[in-house]
Design a protein around this nucleic acid. Sequence first.
DNA 1: AGTTTTATTGTACACTTGTTGAATAAATAA
DNA 2: TTATTTATTCAACAAGTGTACAATAAAACT
Lengths: 189, 189
Amino acid sequence: MTKQDMRIVKTKNALHHALLDLLDEKLLEDISVTEICRTANINRGTFYLHYAQIEDLFEEYFKEITGDLSRAYQEPYRFVSVLKVSRLNSSTIRIFHHIQKYEHFYRIVFSKKVPLMYYYLLFEEINRLLLQEADPKMPEDLNAQIHCAYQANAIIGIIIEWYKSDFSYSADYLNDQLVKILNLSHRPS
Amino acid sequence: MTKQDMRIVKTKNALHHALLDLLDEKLLEDISVTEICRTANINRGTFYLHYAQIEDLFEEYFKEITGDLSRAYQEPYRFVSVLKVSRLNSSTIRIFHHIQKYEHFYRIVFSKKVPLMYYYLLFEEINRLLLQEADPKMPEDLNAQIHCAYQANAIIGIIIEWYKSDFSYSADYLNDQLVKILNLSHRPS
DNA sequence: AGTTTTATTGTACACTTGTTGAATAAATAA
DNA sequence: TTATTTATTCAACAAGTGTACAATAAAACT
């Protein structure tokens, strides 16, 4: 990878900060390209040299933040002392804590006017994480892709409910609830 | 409810048809208000009298189509002869068939540039349907809302995977896979 | 029928959007 | 340092956006 042109770095940084500043005042959908550029002291034409829409600029933030989730997966986890249920790995509690940490950000990601794209990015990230700890001994007639999509999106379902409740639950409570849900079908049928 | 002004009905119909016509040619995000009004022979100011954005016009279609899903729930189901698994009710297969029936429409709903709003509308619809057949004997320390959000969104996860595969599976195959997923945790742990 | 109500139209306005081309400035490379 | 490359700026353009107001037309009401 060739050395980054310092002008580009400076421009992108200015746009990043301008977007963040504006997001404190107003909703993403009410922010215009002209406004970001005025705030960042960057020519509007320069914006379009790097991004097609505001959403593409926001997407760069998104990847920084989900990158944090990904990195958290590498290091050993300290927040939960004992895992009560063998079936439940430490994945989900990490995900819940991550969302809680960046609550301000995910309020934007889950707001109804933003493009579905961000949802897919989160979905794929969680999908990837769950895949790392996939159970190798699965019935071969079970489509692994479909199974992963099921599990990953089920967790996002809980997160959506969390968002709708204005994040009024704790991450630990949600994890506890997830344990209970998974235990449900463990009962003899 | 007071009688609808015929002018409004005519205007909305014209806009509906114009949007449908344009959707055959191009993507939703490439359609402008001006274009819809030109096609519908409706003054642009009139559009803004009824809708704030194109998305609100599209939302009216959405509710017509999910209304079809809701109605399908009322009548007895004929497509599946025998339910192989007692735990799996007929809900999901109906949902899969509904998506398949309106595949053209859901290709738009799941495209990455549309607002998240439509996803939520579908989510709430499926949530409502699942709620109708909710198991009454659940542990009381299990949050029913969270449990429903989990189940409903898990199914949408399968549908997303379906969409990403360009709808290359059959509805029956997906239902079969869902049965297998639900049976997974029935095995003694 | 005539009267009242209100949806629609046409025009205008300030603003944003996405794109273009030439001029300029600032980075990298020799 | 000088030369080269390229990011940025500036001005301008046609188009769309969202809103406002008076004029008009078409409903509903009696």
